[in-house]
Write a protein that binds this DNA or RNA. Structure first.
Lengths: 336, 336
DNA sequence: TTGAAAGCGCTAACAG
DNA sequence: CTGTTAGCGCTTTCAA
């Protein structure tokens, strides 16, 4: 059987109290005893049982991360940022995908597993929309990423401004304007509203220019490369809009789909059709996609640091950190 | 403070033993008492503390899933399958991404968090390569998915056969043959070898046909849409190979990149260039990509069921389940 | 600086 | 069927 703290105490010839103290870096242990304990630990390959530990101490050195889904590069970067700072602080993290009512039900219970962690992160999810009463059913610190919360600390990019940047840039071009966005109506609780905000910003640029974006020029689809591709192909085929065409797709995934359709028709991106995306994923640069960059990894780091502070018990007013996005001009709108 | 089992016992006027019994659906509780307990539970909104529970019972009703990364659609489907059957059995699951030595280090400790779960899954990872000694540092049941293990139960698709199917199909075409594959040398421990196997199968088709695939026709890149795009563009531009060209890309992601490059050059997929991918992700069909289909969700379900059996203590020889992949012929090779 | 002992919240004999 | 009680493996007073 696995050795317990008692075995270590016995082998080291000290009490369990002392072993516990060296385990917790309590300075009041005679160096001599500390050595004995450490030796015994090494000898038996002992590792403390985290559940027992946290049952007694109320600490887990764990952070739980809730995400709406797993299949976007966005979350890889974000996680990388989060994990970097968490690891430095000797925290581990685990991920809980949240994409259905059924899954959500599990997390309605204040004693659900994820809430045993010292801190919780919600990514691209708004707790207020998820739980009745608007609160996450836990007293542990919560920070929200890639979405704005009224109750919890939140870290996100200024999506309205991002949409605005995209609009301003495209409005320098001639031709027809099209917005490809994502319908968030199907399961609004699992959605953060970022797409709506990008759209608002985009429209704002039009307002400023005294122009209007007709309803017919706005297309709502699911968030997938393929749907954007199909849609754009249909648009180009139908000749419903004359060229040049200027497309703002509310994410790089969508922009890529649009770009592919443009290429398929033998049209020239940046000339016949201008395309702007949002995110600046790793491949966007390589594909020459003009896009609105989010500092994804930094957001992750910032969020992790903030959560760590809350866990440490630091008390300060709810913090809301809004990053400024940046327009990256590339070939898909005739840039470098 | 949160109510504990004692509070329930007191309020219901029974002992903690009885409360525990109703919590665990032990039939030997008088219905009358059961009702009292249930009522008290509802009244105080009581939920048992999972750590205390598992400390005493050695059970967690949790499964830990290790993945190499998060950004592929493949894992979404797989997780969906897994989660379906796990949820039915009242199990919850959490995900631990494994992509760096540093992260791996955490999981070298037999008392690490993920190993407190009742069962462990490794996806696209080979435990034998990950841990010294070749064993996962736990006695909990382990099942391996999307990779073959010599020690643990494993569920995967016959990648060699899949590659073979792709080869056979392409060999019906005229012209030059190209293989786009993924280099797994950079961090071999975090890799399962599926790409190598697909390549082996592909070569086998050539062997059978008495043909050879020259080294110059094989390209190794990272697993990304963009790299496949860039590579294919370069190949097409250089005119190093005359058309028609027949490309097998070892994943749909890569195949998509290749397809995009083909379109960009104004060439016709299925005529000038034939492309075959691997996976059959959701959008592959929409894009008309010929590909080798893996029954991803079924694999997830199968794996979860197997793990559940192991958790239940069923003892049977190590099981190895190999699914047969299926070729889906579409426009990218001139199909429907 | 240390050991003894009382929990943390629960399960699982055991006796009745 | 039920109450009592001894743990699970650890932390944290409290004295000494």
């Amino acid at each position: 059987m696995k050795p317990s703290i008692k075995d270590i105490a016995k082998l080291a010839g000290v009490s369990v109290g002392t072993v516990s103290r060296v385990l917790n870096n309590n300075p009041s242990v005679r160096p001599e005893n500390r050595m004995k304990v450490l030796k015994a630990i090494a000898q038996l390959g002992y590792r403390p049982n985290p559940f027992a530990r946290s049952l007694a101490s109320k600490k887990t050195y764990m952070v739980s991360i809730f995400l709406p889904m797993l299949n976007s590069e966005f979350y890889s970067y974000l996680f990388e940022g989060i994990d970097n700072v968490l690891s430095d602080a000797w925290y581990d993290s685990s991920i809980y995908p949240l994409f259905s009512k059924r899954r959500l039900m599990n997390y309605t219970n204040p004693n659900a597993f994820p809430y045993q962690s010292d801190g919780i992160m919600f990514v691209s999810l708004i707790p207020e929309k998820l739980f009745e009463g608007g609160h996450v059913p836990t007293r542990k610190p919560v920070v929200v990423i890639d979405a704005r919360s009224e109750i919890y600390d939140s870290i996100y990019v200024d999506n309205i401004f991002g949409g605005y940047l995209a609009g301003k840039h495209l409005l320098e071009k001639k031709g027809n304007f099209i917005l490809i966005t994502v319908s968030e109506k199907a399961s609004p609780e699992f959605t953060s509203g970022v797409f709506v905000q990008r759209r608002i910003g985009f429209k704002k640029a039009f307002d400023e220019a005294g122009l209007e974006l007709p309803q017919d020029n706005i297309f709502e689809i699911n968030h997938s490369f393929a749907e954007a591709f199909i849609l754009t192909r249909r648009i180009l085929k139908s000749k419903q809009f004359s060229l040049p065409l200027n497309i703002f797709a509310v994410s790089d995934i969508l922009a890529m789909g649009a770009l592919e359709a443009v290429l398929e028709r033998g049209l020239i991106p940046g000339k016949d059709v201008n395309i702007v995306g949002f995110d600046d994923l790793r491949w966007s640069k390589k594909l020459g996609l003009t896009t609105v960059r989010q500092p994804i990894m930094q957001m992750g780091k910032k969020a992790a640091n903030l959560l760590l502070k809350r866990i440490a018990g630091e008390s300060f007013p709810r913090r809301e950190i809004r990053f400024k996005p940046k327009l990256m001009i590339r070939r898909s709108t005739g840039g470098g």
